[in-house]
Amino acid sequence: MTKQNLKIYGYESAEFETLLELREVTFSINAEQAELIGEFFLKCARDMTENPDWEHKHYDGAGPVDLIVYKS
């Protein structure tokens, strides 16, 4: 497996004006949420492996924030 730099993008506010490349992201979550997000990332990885046309998936358990995995 080739090591690649992780790229993280986000918006400063809900107005979605300028997509920013972020250096750091912090999740304020509990153990149950961490497990659910971990399962989401694993599902995305499996889907990417099984489907070369897979592009992205939205996590629907993040409340008022958007968590999106996008294939690079």
Rank of each mutant, 00 (worst) to 15 (best):
A34G: 05
F41E: 00
W54V: 07
M48R: 10
A45L: 04
K7I: 12
Q4K: 15
V25K: 10
K57N: 08
L6I: 07
T26R: 12
N51E: 04
E15H: 12
Y11Q: 03
Y11S: 05
E35Q: 01
A45R: 05
G38S: 11
L42Q: 15
L6E: 04
A31P: 05
N30L: 02
E39S: 03
N30V: 04
L42S: 15
G10M: 02
P52A: 05
E24N: 15
N30Y: 05
I37P: 02
L19A: 15
T49P: 00
S28K: 13
I8N: 11
L22D: 07
S13N: 15
E32Q: 11
G38P: 04
S13V: 03
T26L: 11
I8F: 12
I37C: 01
D47G: 03
N5V: 12
I8S: 11
E21W: 04
A34C: 05
N30F: 06
G10L: 01
W54G: 06
Q4T: 08
E55Q: 05
C44H: 09
S28Q: 12
T18C: 09
E15I: 03
A14I: 00
E32G: 09
L19I: 13
L20W: 07
E21Y: 03
E55A: 06
D47H: 11
C44R: 07
Y9P: 00
G38K: 07
K43G: 06
F40L: 02
V25D: 07
S28L: 09
H58S: 08
A31M: 03
E50F: 06
K57V: 05
W54R: 07
N30E: 10
L36P: 02
S13D: 15
S13G: 13
R23Q: 14
N5W: 09
P52N: 01
N51W: 01
L19D: 08
E17Q: 13
A14K: 00
N30M: 03
E39R: 04
A31G: 05
A14Y: 01
H56W: 08
I29K: 02
V25C: 13
A45P: 02
L22H: 11
Y11P: 01
R23C: 06
I8M: 15
E35K: 00
L20Q: 15
W54E: 08
